[in-house]
Design a binder for these strands. Structure first.
Lengths: 210, 210
DNA sequence: ATTTATATCCGTATAAATACGGATGCCTGA
DNA sequence: TCAGGCATCCGTATTTATACGGATATAAAT
């Protein structure tokens, strides 16, 4: 019988090691490698053949989970990614699904669920638990799946706002009129569906825009 | 030989379970319970005797790690807390040490270090790894160890600001005058050493105040 | 080729936030 | 008991941000 070959990609060594111990208790699963960031993962799969599944954390240094998903798609591999994240966030879930994830688990799901999903995905099935799927659906109905919500200029302005610059200061820095910055500001507020600076910065932080 | 009795307190089930598997490979260590938040932990130690060590996450629902540390001190127990956090943050480290932690580990330390620290602490020794200690020292030299930088009211106001409420709305909600909220707001800005709302929310997010 | 998004600018107004410099009663810890 | 932090309130003034409702040129997309 062929074991399911799994790679663990997570930047927390204790988590990686612990997860490994959980997995190897199951005879049909084999942990072929563990890596601490996306770059290491991409390197690893060059030399390891027939990997079935990667358990992928979204927040990692060097190359994060989303970039890994994209790279896997570009490479057209057979490796099926399952996200293991601590963020129960509609945007993250939707983005992951869109980028090709086969499953999305929270770090506080239980061992049984984890094993179940690994087995399902190894048979080429996608699995998102009911509550995760619900989060995603709610999110998508309310927001457009926010990939590039903001234009480059808007992102730039947002960045400067988050550093505490006022509209006037930003205008001076970018050599445009304050009216221009005010418009950018208003557009950013509208796009992120918030009504003032405080909410803006909070939301931008949550969805990792700054 | 008496085993070292350990409780694991972390809100991520996969992490808890994984950690347990790591620990029970060592004959001198016994995991007597696992809990998902501070309240559960406090309940657990009422009924479990002679617990030596708690591996304690800082960010947990209901009752976070810092509150647990405080409670342990108040109760005057023999349970020695070791922090296991993902935040390599001077403020967190300093606060933990001050609140009675016997050690501070990052979630990306390796298994050997973890076991080493557990054994040391079980012999009533404190252990902070060199890089952790360095972080703490640097932090303390630059900042005053910010324990309760903000008063309860200020925290409350900050929370409402972060939800996008205006000064007027907050005043209405808390049944006080807008001047009062303005003062709180000004004091929060001063204490966090920022100059406007945008910076405020960013900083508050960084140091996990909201 | 026509729509759509972007970046730029303008006016008028109001609402909100920030910066000063005060004051008082209350509670708590040294 | 007494100092100090806290929560509460007040006035005055200025600066910023938000809300309307426009416009134009360019570039990208359908």
């Amino acid at each position: 019988m062929n074991k399911i070959k799994v790679i663990i990609a997570d930047d927390h060594e204790l988590f990686r090691n612990g997860l490994k111990e959980l997995l190897i208790k199951h005879d049909d699963i084999e942990v072929v490698d563990m890596v601490g960031d996306g770059n290491q993962f991409i390197n690893a799969i060059q030399s390891i053949p027939d990997v079935n599944i990667v358990l992928l954390d979204l927040t990692m240094p060097n190359m994060d989970g989303f970039e890994v998903l994209k790279t896997l798609k570009d490479y057209n591999t057979n490796i099926k990614p399952i996200i293991i994240s601590m963020h129960n966030d509609g945007n993250y879930i939707a983005k992951s699904a869109k980028a090709g994830a086969y499953g999305y688990l929270l770090k506080n799901t239980d061992e049984d669920e984890l094993i179940k999903v690994i087995r399902l995905v190894s048979q080429n099935k996608k699995y998102f638990s009911p509550n995760i799927a619900e989060k995603m659906i709610n999110f998508m109905s309310e927001h457009k799946v926010s990939e590039n919500i903001l234009s480059n200029k808007e992102k730039e302005v947002l960045g400067l706002i988050s550093e505490g610059l006022t509209t006037k200061e930003i205008a001076a820095k970018l050599f445009v009129s304050t009216r221009t910055i005010e418009t950018h500001r208003a557009n950013v507020l509208k796009k992120l569906e918030v009504k003032n600076t405080a909410e803006l910065i909070k939301k931008a932080t949550q969805i990792n825009l700054i």
